[in-house]
Design a binder for these strands. Sequence first.
DNA 1: CTTGTTAGACCAACCGGTCAGTCTTAATTT
DNA 2: AAATTAAGACTGACCGGTTGGTCTAACAAG
Lengths: 209, 209
Amino acid sequence: MAKTLGLRKNPLKDEREQAFKQAALKLFSTKGYHKTTMAEVALEAGFGKGTLYWYWKSKEELYFALVEESHNEFVDLVRRAAEMEGTALEKLAWLGKETVELHYRERDYTKLSWKMRAEELETFSPEYVERMHENNAEIKRELQRIIEQGIEEGTLPPADPYYLACMLLGLVEGMEIQWLEDPEAFDLRKAMEMVLSLGAKVAGQRWSD
Amino acid sequence: MAKTLGLRKNPLKDEREQAFKQAALKLFSTKGYHKTTMAEVALEAGFGKGTLYWYWKSKEELYFALVEESHNEFVDLVRRAAEMEGTALEKLAWLGKETVELHYRERDYTKLSWKMRAEELETFSPEYVERMHENNAEIKRELQRIIEQGIEEGTLPPADPYYLACMLLGLVEGMEIQWLEDPEAFDLRKAMEMVLSLGAKVAGQRWSD
DNA sequence: CTTGTTAGACCAACCGGTCAGTCTTAATTT
DNA sequence: AAATTAAGACTGACCGGTTGGTCTAACAAG
């Protein structure tokens, strides 16, 4: 047929890869890593198991390809927030809203990423664990930058910025848990709005002792 | 003759059960549920696999016995906070400190409980999942009571108390994650103190619009 | 033919749980 | 105190099922 781009050998390759990823995401995010078999993923994608192994060399690799994709999206968001124009509070408000939208848009990814977090990290290959760790550190670093700005501006309390970053991240992650566990009872959008409005109210505070 | 003998009790039984639990806690909390085998648990405790099955009828049952033990301890704490004398802020401060101490004292339990939370809940028997859910709901209920009191007293913002409870719980859980992942970099005690002191500072705020 | 791609049978390892049988010892009898 | 009895604690080989990963035959395209 049409051999669109000269260089590409199999124009279907990307498409296939996408199909596998989608199938894997669906299964991993609902059934978890251990209870999902490679045969299932292949079947869900509509191919044979051997084909799946032609694209990824192991179950672990397939899994982390997905996890990393999801993480990168969030890292990107935080980075953009840190680099945009505006006050720290504006940056955080923007980041908060975008984060929520990201999660709503890609709920399966959020679920997956979340599962892997508590999954037995100790048992995955050190190489992958290392990458996850670095990823996480980067997020905290960017967050810290924003917070330092906020402290200078006087809208955030003059406390250890690293700890504030961890706490902020913790708050959001904690809310994500609540949301994932019971999306009906806990609306993440509403929660984020509450946090931001409380934050804004409190920002006028005289922080100095 | 040939009378049935009276009930006999092995004085070592409790002790043995403890040994199994301890071994299981150690392995589950470091390697996770799936990667821990019953044979390992038995070996670690110094007994044969069959004996382990004498005490628990399945791997799942053993696991949830531990998880529940840990959860109950926390539920108990929250309940006591809700029922003690004092202002909402005093209750929360007490609860926060006790919670941190509990986690330091029983780090393995915390880790286990945390793992199970994100582990593929969907794959455990509904019976167990149901119990975990109820447990969690109870915690939120008690927390909500304290928060309602705080709103009345004017020290907490007049917002949806259920959401505030979820957010508070989320904050603490999120911090626990940070701590579990890197206890060196993130000292849970220090973090909790920061939260409480910030909370106290902000409590004077005029919340009304 | 050569090269890239796909399918699915097949394999070896693993693991939860069982079971037939052994050992220990409290309770009872002599 | 000694002997007897059986509850109950314990064992580990074994079974059945599962699953990650491999291998090869086939097929398609150039």
